[in-house]
Each structure stands twice: as C-alpha cells, then as structure tokens.
Design a protein around this nucleic acid. Structure first.
Lengths: 201, 201
DNA sequence: ACGGCTATGTTCACGCCGTCCACATGAGGC
DNA sequence: GCCTCATGTGGACGGCGTGAACATAGCCGT
C-alpha cells in the first residue's frame, strides 16, 4: 500500500476506494477530494490527473455502487428455488431482486444515496456488476412471458415496479430510518406483494 | 427591500426566502449561507443570530417546502368531485393527493429534494401548510373506513402508498427526468392504479 | 546505452465557504 | 433619558475545489 516511488502505480483505483469508503460512512456530502488524496498519501491535485473534479469522482463512486447493488440483486436472484409454475417462479424472482434492492439500500445507505442521488442527466451506467435497471427489465419480461402482467401489460410496468421498490428504499434510508428490523421486513413484504398485485391488475 | 436602518426588521424571513430561492434553482447543494446573506444585503454572520448554521437553515427551508407540498396536496384534494359511492370517493381522493405529491416534486425538484433529502433523525415537521404525511394518513383512514383496504388491512398501508408515490417522484426528479409530459402522466396514472390495486389486495 | 517525450505527482496560489470571537449599534423597557 | 440586550458588523482561521507552472520518472526509439 505504501508507495515507495514517486509514481503511485494504481492511483485511480486507490482514489476510488478511498472515496467509496468516505461516501459509505457519511453519504455524498462526506466526499472531499483533498481528504481522499490525503488518505491515499498523495497531493490533492494528483486526483485531477484521473478525474475531472469532485463531481466526476463522485459519479465514479456512484457507478461502482450501482454495480455492487446489481451484484447483490444477482445473488438474491440466484437463491430462488426452482419451481414448476412459471408464473409463480417469475413472481418469486421479481420479489427476490426487489428485496435485494431495498436490503442493499438499508445495508449501505451512503452508497445507495450516491448511486441514485445526483443524476447529471444521461444514462447512469455501472461497473463491477450487472446493471440493476437491466435486471429489473429482465424480471418483468419474464413476468410478461408468464402472463403475470395484467390488463395494462408490459409497458410502464418497469416504472411502477422500480418506483415502489426505490421509494421504499428511499424511505427506509430517510424519513423511516429507525424502523426496527421487524417492521422493516414487514414493510418490504407488504410492498412487494402490493407491487405484484399492482402489476397483475 | 433595501433596509434603511442598521437593524433589518425581518431578517429571519428574508433569509429563509432567499435560501428557498437558492435551493429552488439548484437543489440542496446550491445553498450557501454567505451568498444568501449577501443577497439579503447583510453580513454573513448576521445569519447566525437566526440559525444555528448552514444545516439549520437548510432544515428550515425543508420545513417550508414540506408545508408548500402539503398545501398543493390539499388543493388537489379539494378539487375532487363529490360522489355517492364512498369507496370510489375515497379512492379518488387518495389518487388526488398522490398525484399532487408527484406533481409538486416535478414542478419543484429542488425543493422536493430538500424536503425529504437529508433527515437528521427525528420527526420532520412542516410549516406553512398541512403535513403531507398526515394528509396521506387521513386518506388511508378514509379508505379503510370505506372498506378499500383488503386482506392486509390498514397496518402498513401508509408505507406502501407513500413508497409508491415517493419512489415515482424521486425517479421523475432523478434518473427518469427527461421523460416527456405524456410519458410522465401515463406513469403517474399507472402507478396510482397499481397502488390502489396493491392496497385492495 | 542514452536522450528525450509524456504520463503522473507536486507546489503554489486564488477565491469561496462555514464558523468563531470581539465589537458596534440601536430599539424598547425602566 | 438612560441601560440593556437583541441584532448586525468586521476580522480571522482553517478547509475546500481547482487552475497554472514545475518536477519526476517510466518508456520508447535510436
């Protein structure tokens, strides 16, 4: 870790790591280019060789956070038991990614905030894992194929599902932080059921 | 506006107004105590006679924003036509406040962000209008009384409804900004329908 | 082997911000 | 009419983001 030479060798990654740590424990506002540089043991302006500035560094952290979130969702998905009824399976899989979404937010509030907080227009993108948005799309395609999307069909189903899950995550990280484990679990269950019902209607 | 005397007379309100304007066009990050003071024509430190600091000023702006949002919701509610079927009426009224919630967020993204963005633990509170959260509760009580909440009942219904609406608002202000008016309206309609279906299930 | 090119870090400097402290002012109560 | 206390001012400190000029060293062609 200690850099013996004038050139660091892996500064960019080191900066991203330090920045991620900062955001992780303190949210987006806790990111300071100077401090991150200090942490890595490098002069403040060294960071400008790898990032356009504070915003760019933050955006990079956000990309990685989205990737990590996608990975968590993929893991949740992979642990869904196989099942004969394709519709029930599709529902279970949708629930699994939804649950993983909010659980990630609760587990990593700082990273979650930064992942979807500031969106300076343009496609988000993500690195280090699958794209959460894409994963949701796949689940909904599956639901559609299984006939789980009701009268209103596939169009706009993604927005509904995402809004429900994202909103709950946002609340649990914000105004509803402080809900105990139990209440939180119940809220997640009920919300996922409501989303499923809403999509089927 | 120009103050003739050493003492301003209404500094606190003037500061809140200027701060609100700043947040309105630029989000939470655009609030600077010094700039607000400059705008009002007063020394930077004068603000410290009325607010504990930057965070306190921002929190005050947030309170007002929540009040304004509550007012918008109340207005949306008041324009719901009377109706004989109490359940249909309750549903329409719930939809109205939900729609107003989302529309306020889209109309005032900066204020919306600050209204629910940083919650330093503790009850939010609001000034200048009814409490959005309380308004939602009332709508759900009404729904419950009309028998509109299904098997799972009133408990937790508030979280589901709020999550759906809040999540959509958050998306429309963030990753889904740039949706055109038409798509946005469709998304709101579909989400509100889904929430209703989810609550009835 | 060596000399220069270029990517990568460093130093210095500027202006802005939040906030603390000591001081000035003046409005309102005795 | 004076005194007091809330309110506003000035100056200062440290931190931040960032630009410009300079230093270092890995690398590549000769």
């Amino acid at each position: 870790m200690a850099r013996a030479s004038y050139h660091h060798g892996d500064l960019r990654n080191a900066l991203v790591a330090a920045a991620t740590a900062a955001v992780r424990s303190g949210g987006p506002g806790a990111l300071a280019v100077r401090e991150v540089a200090r942490e890595v043991g490098v002069s403040p302006n060294a960071a400008y060789r790898h990032f356009a500035g504070h915003a760019d560094l933050l955006a990079t952290v956000a990309e990685h956070a989205r990737g990590a979130m996608g990975a968590a969702m993929a893991e949740g998905l992979s642990s869904v038991a196989a099942q004969d009824d394709p519709l029930a399976l599709a529902r279970a899989r949708l629930r699994a990614v939804g649950r993983a979404y909010v659980e990630y937010a609760v587990a990593e509030p700082g990273l979650f905030r930064v992942a979807f907080g500031e969106t300076p227009e343009g496609p988000p993108g993500c690195v280090g894992g699958p794209d959460p948005w894409a994963m949701l799309q796949e689940r909904l395609d599956e639901m559609d194929a299984a006939g789980g999307l009701g009268r209103r069909g596939r169009d706009g189903a993604d927005t509904v599902a995402w809004a429900g899950v994202h909103g709950l995550a946002e609340l649990l990280v914000g105004p509803l932080a402080g809900l105990d484990e139990r209440a939180r679990g119940a809220a997640v269950d009920r919300l996922l059921a409501a989303v499923a019902a809403g999509l089927a209607a």
